[in-house]
Design a protein around this nucleic acid. Structure first.
Length: 285
DNA sequence: ATGCAGGTCCTTT
DNA sequence: AAAGGACCTGCA
């Protein structure tokens, strides 16, 4: 750890760290000034504490034992030109949403952390999702010390399985404790193989595997695929997305039909489009 | 204080 | 298939 250096990265296309950290995908990054630089710090996977800052639009600074892992996590290597070229070109609403926050990315989180966090997110506001995440880390996450501060990794499924439903409930997640605990047990016992969902070629099969879990419906399954498995075609529909599709796209469809329309309309990177629309809807509708 | 928030499940039509 | 109600908690 002694010879960990600061790495400078130039993102492919527009990138905004602050927008990404506020976008409702990631919940545990903490502001931290390091060596006089503004930035954020947190645990990323098993690589200990990572620090990241963005001094200007085209420069991202990373302090990690594995900078490549950080690049993949924050999506700094995504070819935004090519991704947006695959969007429907006549879509003025999407174009406006992209103009509204061009620096957004789809981060790629560790799958379990992503799944578990979204299980605790149902019918919750971002601030509370964050509070639950931090409490879980505090109680069962691996401790890392860096520059005199303490950080916690997201608890492994084995830890939450062993903790039990009642202890999870004490972290303020209410009825979601049952779902989280059962998911932790299922993953710990190997009944669900999250590794097999990575970059899934068969999206429907991957989604079906996640839907087996109690407390995981279409929305959370799609969030897990999009934010935790690299499946950019997955299109989570929450109240905000439903609102923008109804108000600005004049779509009255519901559930599976709306889902199908969205994937047909937005194409192979529908999930990426979803993220721009979600952020736009949250700020403007 | 009553209502509501990034859903899901179970029951009834 | 589609609609209605219940479910924990915290905050306005």
């Amino acid at each position: 750890m002694a010879d960990v250096l600061l790495t400078s990265v130039r993102p492919d296309g527009p990138f905004s760290l602050s927008e990404l950290l506020k976008s409702g995908q990631l919940f545990h990054w903490e502001p931290m000034v390091w060596q006089g630089r503004e930035g954020h710090a947190g645990c990323l996977g098993d690589s200990g504490v990572t620090w990241i800052g963005q001094p200007d639009e085209t420069t991202v600074l990373i302090r990690s034992v594995d900078p490549g892992e950080v690049v993949r996590y924050f999506g700094l290597d995504h070819a935004m030109g090519a991704i947006q070229a695959a969007f429907p070109q006549g879509d003025a609403v999407l174009a406006e949403a992209i103009r509204f926050s061009p620096g957004l990315r789809i981060a790629r989180q560790p799958t379990w952390e992503c799944l578990a966090t979204f299980i605790t997110s149902s019918l919750k506001q971002v601030a509370h999702i964050r509070a639950i995440s931090m409490l879980l880390r505090q109680r069962w996450g691996e401790l890392h010390e860096w520059e005199g501060r303490f950080f916690r990794a997201y608890p492994r499924p084995e830890m939450l399985a062993e903790a039990g439903e009642d202890a999870l409930r004490e972290c303020g997640m209410g009825y979601r404790a049952k779902s989280l605990h059962r998911a932790a047990v299922a993953v710990a016992e190997g009944r669900v193989d999250l590794a097999s969902l990575q970059d899934a070629a068969d999206l429907d099969a991957a989604r079906a595997a996640l839907l087996e879990l109690h407390g995981v419906g279409e929305k959370i399954a799609n969030c897990t695929l999009l934010f935790g498995c690299g499946c950019w075609e997955a299109f989570p529909i929450d109240v905000w997305i439903e609102r923008i599709l109804r108000q600005l796209y004049r779509k009255r469809l519901k559930g599976a039909r709306l889902q199908q329309w969205a994937v047909d309309h937005f194409g192979e990177h529908a999930g990426y489009a979803q993220q721009y629309l979600f952020h736009f809807a949250r700020k403007n509708l």
